[in-house]
Design a protein around this nucleic acid. Structure first.
Length: 217
DNA sequence: CCCCAGGGACATT
DNA sequence: AATGTCCATGGG
């Protein structure tokens, strides 16, 4: 069967470099805000939400406030709700952002916080914790999401819980930050494009490797 | 009209 | 441990 490294290479060849949340590429330096703050905030806002809606909220924060955890601490909950409204679940997420911003106040550095610590924060579950650790903290913590579960179940017949799947992936790919970040992003791209709720196996370049590919459709 | 999106907390069985 | 419900805006 297709190894995870082979799968990664095929996805990368097909979709190209995704570059989610590039901390080291300087796109953030315009206003001097910490890119890690933006990633942490984005990780909460994108919970069960399309990224295009999150972008609207991030733009509002940039335009009418500041895309930083310090601003999240300062602003009133009511105003924060209005700024992030386009991202959906806005009252819930305003509370979560407040909790997260408080967790990192003032000296907790994302490069050093523990996964267990993050998981104690109201509003941070396993996926959000791993996304923060990986993309903001530069830590080798692979992110599992609904897309990953769906793809691995169909492709490999692998149907296990979050931590088991996370461990499985981590044990079968190189311990490389770029690969961790890109593999997760590429899996999401493929799940959105082909391995959807109702899969489009017809045009899928992985169908010959897939346990559950439908011959036509 | 429908379904879904880069989930998580909490209640129920 | 597994499943159900709620949270909410914006697109397809």
């Amino acid at each position: 069967m297709l190894s995870l490294v082979q799968l990664y290479q095929l996805l990368l060849d097909f979709y190209g470099y995704q570059g989610w949340w590039p901390v080291d590429e300087g796109y953030h330096t315009a206003k001097g805000t910490d890119p890690r703050d933006e990633i942490i905030i984005g990780a909460v806002l994108t919970q069960n939400t399309a990224w295009r809606n999150v972008e609207k909220a991030l733009e509002n924060l940039k335009k009418y406030g500041e895309l930083s955890l310090e601003f999240i601490r300062q602003v009133s909950t009511k105003e924060l709700e209005e700024l992030i409204r386009p991202s959906g679940f806005y009252r819930l997420k305003a509370q979560r952002l407040k909790h997260v911003a408080e967790f990192f106040n003032p000296t907790d550095v994302v490069e050093k916080v523990s996964r267990e610590g993050l998981l104690k924060v109201k509003g941070i579950g396993k996926e959000t914790a791993d996304a923060i650790l990986l993309y903001a903290g530069g830590r080798l913590s692979f992110v599992i999401d609904a897309y990953t579960k769906r793809l691995f179940k169909r492709l490999y017949g692998l149907d296990v819980g979050y931590d088991d799947l996370k461990s499985y992936v981590e044990e079968n790919i190189p311990k490389d930050l770029t690969i961790y970040k890109e593999f997760h992003a590429l899996i999401d791209e493929h799940a959105k494009a082909y391995c959807k709720s109702t899969p489009r196996c017809g045009g899928c370049f992985l169908k010959n490797f897939c346990l559950s590919a439908v011959p036509s459709s």
